[in-house]
């Protein structure tokens, strides 16, 4: 749950994006690996990698709201849907370029975030959850039933688009766009978390009354948090629409909102690394389970429905496991692993 680094002695150290040289090198190597990924990955792997990137952007948004500011939301998928449908509609009717669509998706989603944030200022805990959940259901209902605008369940196809001469119809080029935006979102969130505003968010989360006493404007920071969160969700939704090339209400259901909350729980609330780990883990988990259960279903078709149920059970059990035994999520595990190896070969 910590915003500041472990074992830092000066503010300068605390404000660095990369805490150490080894972190800088390992992250650079990781980015190089990602850049080279399209050279050896197939369409499926690239799609899954793009989905991880999109989930990362959206989950970082939710982490700002829930992890840093402590405002629980079960309507994150609705903001993504707003972003996604914005690009679908603007693309269909106004043929706007990709970069403009992207910004527009974020802006429209953040306006929706503002609309939810203002009445939610006086709410917290369960009441806020119910409000955001209601927002999710309203958006779902509108998308499904305002058929003249949204085409209902059949959805809106997203036509081929390009960015700076790149044909983004291609999976590898799509992946690069998602990668660049995911990196940008990570740096932005990291900076925001370490800024004065980010620390105010944490103060609101830890004790709102105490925060107000020390001069943090609660309303302003809650609204800012909602806007930042929904902006990133909108961007995520926009990218989802482009990657899927068709947008339907079923992409952004209540279950998706739950999954996003699960991502920050599993990854670790209030940490950027945790958000990324959670997003990747929860996106890859069904694919990984599919790798195990897919061949089993092929071999034993009459076991398939049971295998499907086991699949879901494992999914639920992992979330329960993290809630009970690893409340700091994958981030906590990561820190423990790091701390274990730091003094190696000595014990302490």
């Amino acid at each position: 749950m910590a915003v500041t680094r472990y074992c830092t002695r000066t503010y300068l150290q605390d404000q660095r994006i990369f805490p150490s040289h080894s972190a800088k090198i390992s992250l650079t190597l990781f980015v190089i690996f990602l850049v080279l990924l399209p050279a050896f990955a197939g369409q499926y792997l690239l799609l899954v990698a793009s989905l991880c990137g999109i989930a990362t952007i959206s989950v970082l948004g939710l982490n700002i709201l829930t992890g840093y500011t402590g405002q629980l939301s079960l309507g994150h998928a609705a903001f993504m849907a707003i972003g996604g449908y914005t690009v679908a509609l603007t693309g269909e009717h106004f043929h706007l370029p990709f970069e403009l669509n992207l910004i527009l998706a974020g802006v429209v989603a953040s306006i929706a975030g503002l609309v939810v944030a203002i009445p939610s200022l006086r709410l917290k805990g369960l009441y806020l959850i119910i409000t955001t959940m209601a927002f999710q259901f309203i958006v779902e209902y509108v998308l499904l039933h305002w058929e003249s605008l949204t085409e209902g369940e059949r959805g809106i196809p997203i036509h081929a688009y390009s960015l700076f001469q790149l044909n983004l119809d291609d999976r590898s080029q799509q992946f690069y766009v998602v990668l660049v935006l995911a990196i940008a979102a990570t740096i932005l969130t990291k900076n925001l978390a370490m800024s004065r505003t980010g620390r105010a968010f944490v103060a609101v989360r830890d004790h709102d009354i105490a925060a107000e006493i020390i001069g943090v404007n609660l309303a302003k920071h809650k609204i800012m948090s909602f806007i930042a969160s929904s902006f990133m969700a909108g961007i995520g939704g926009c990218l989802y629409a482009y990657v899927y090339q068709r947008i339907t209400p079923e992409i952004f259901t209540f279950m998706v909102s739950i999954e996003y909350v699960a991502m920050i729980i599993v990854g670790g609330m209030g940490t950027v690394v945790g958000g990324i780990l959670g997003a990747c883990f929860m996106t890859l988990l069904p694919q990984f389970l599919g790798l195990i259960f897919g061949p089993l279903s092929s071999a034993y078709p009459f076991m398939s429905s049971r295998l499907g149920a086991i699949n879901i059970m494992i999914y639920g059990m992992i979330i329960i496991f993290f809630l009970l035994f690893e409340p700091e999520g994958l981030f906590g595990i990561w820190i423990r692993i790091k701390n274990y190896w730091k003094p190696w070969p000595f014990k302490y």
Binding site: G42, Q43, Y244
Partner: peptide, 23 residues
């Protein structure tokens, strides 16, 4: 011969299942 993917009746998973099958 046949390869099976569980899509859970979910359009998102169907998309990834389709590309997996394509690969």
């Amino acid at each position: 011969s046949l390869i099976i993917e569980d899509n859970k009746y979910d359009p998102n998973l169907t998309k990834t299942a389709f590309f997996k099958l394509m690969d």
